[in-house]
Amino acid sequence: MALRYELDPPVDRRLADGICALWAEVVNAGGAVGFVPPVTADDVRPELVRHLTAMAEERVRLMVARDEDGEVAGTAFLTFNTHRLMRHWVWLYTVMLHPARQGRGEGRDLMAAVEEAVRGMDGIRGIRLTCRGGMGLERFYGSCGYKEVGRVPDAIRVADDDFRDDITMWLQLR
């Protein structure tokens, strides 16, 4: 069954717990969303609290993908620029889809839902994201219409002897 997408859902304990559980599952399955495995939901909770605080301050918006039971199956966070010369684009980050749902086109559907939501935002002309090299993520985002516009070699350290490129991707909307 198809996922349902909701921009800026009301945040309650169930949603927060669902995002934390999803985040831990994604990381532990090898996902590149700000942590390296192993992690627990409690490990990622402080980072979610920072996201939620930014949402309360209206600096960040949240897209949630829910499954047929209403459980959190995916997320994407959008943050607005505060710099007066860059308010025409948003950052996309913490894009996650439950590992069991990957490989079925639902990641592309999540990205399409994000794009549609951003196209409806006044004055926004582009979406920028970064991703961790060595994961094939730039190919996935490329298949969603994003273009690689920059790469910083070895900028991400995931282990003592494991450095990855920080790749910047861009989607022009207008």
Rank of each mutant, 00 (worst) to 15 (best):
G18M: 09
G18W: 10
I19F: 07
I19V: 15
I19E: 03
C20S: 14
C20A: 15
C20T: 04
C20M: 02
A21Y: 06
A21V: 14
A21H: 14
L22F: 10
L22E: 04
L22A: 09
L22T: 03
L22D: 08
L22I: 13
W23C: 03
W23P: 05
W23N: 06
W23M: 07
A24H: 05
A24P: 01
A24Y: 02
A24N: 05
E25H: 05
E25M: 00
E25Q: 12
V26I: 09
V26Y: 01
V26Q: 01
V26F: 03
V27W: 01
V27F: 04
V27G: 01
N28Y: 04
N28W: 08
N28Q: 06
N28H: 09
A29F: 04
A29S: 13
G30W: 13
G30Q: 12
G31W: 02
G31S: 09
G31D: 02
G31E: 02
G31F: 02
A32G: 08
A32E: 04
A32D: 05
A32C: 07
V33N: 06
V33R: 03
G34V: 01
G34A: 03
G34N: 03
G34F: 02
G34E: 04
F35T: 01
V36S: 07
V36M: 02
V36F: 02
P37F: 11
P37W: 06
P37V: 04
P37I: 09
P38I: 09
P38H: 14
P38F: 11
P38G: 10
P38E: 10
P38M: 09
P38Q: 09
V39A: 07
V39P: 01
V39K: 06
T40K: 10
T40E: 14
A41R: 02
A41Y: 00
A41N: 12
D42Q: 15
D42P: 00
D43S: 15
V44L: 06
V44Y: 01
V44F: 03
R45I: 03
R45V: 02
P46N: 10
P46S: 05
P46R: 06
P46M: 08
P46H: 08
E47L: 08
E47P: 00
L48Y: 05
L48P: 06
L48R: 07
V49M: 12
V49D: 15
V49H: 07
V49Y: 01
V49T: 13
V49C: 11
V49W: 00
R50F: 00
R50H: 08
R50L: 09
R50D: 14
R50A: 14
H51F: 15
H51V: 02
L52W: 15
L52P: 11
L52D: 12
L52Y: 13
T53M: 09
A54Q: 12
A54I: 00
A54M: 12
A54D: 14
M55I: 15
A56N: 13
A56T: 14
E57K: 13
E57G: 10
E57W: 10
E58D: 14
E58L: 13
E58Q: 15
R59V: 08
R59T: 11
R59M: 10
V60Y: 10
V60S: 08
V60C: 04
V60T: 12
R61M: 04
L62T: 06
M63A: 00
M63H: 07
V64D: 03
V64L: 12
V64S: 02
V64Y: 06
A65W: 05
A65D: 09
A65M: 07
A65P: 06
R66G: 07
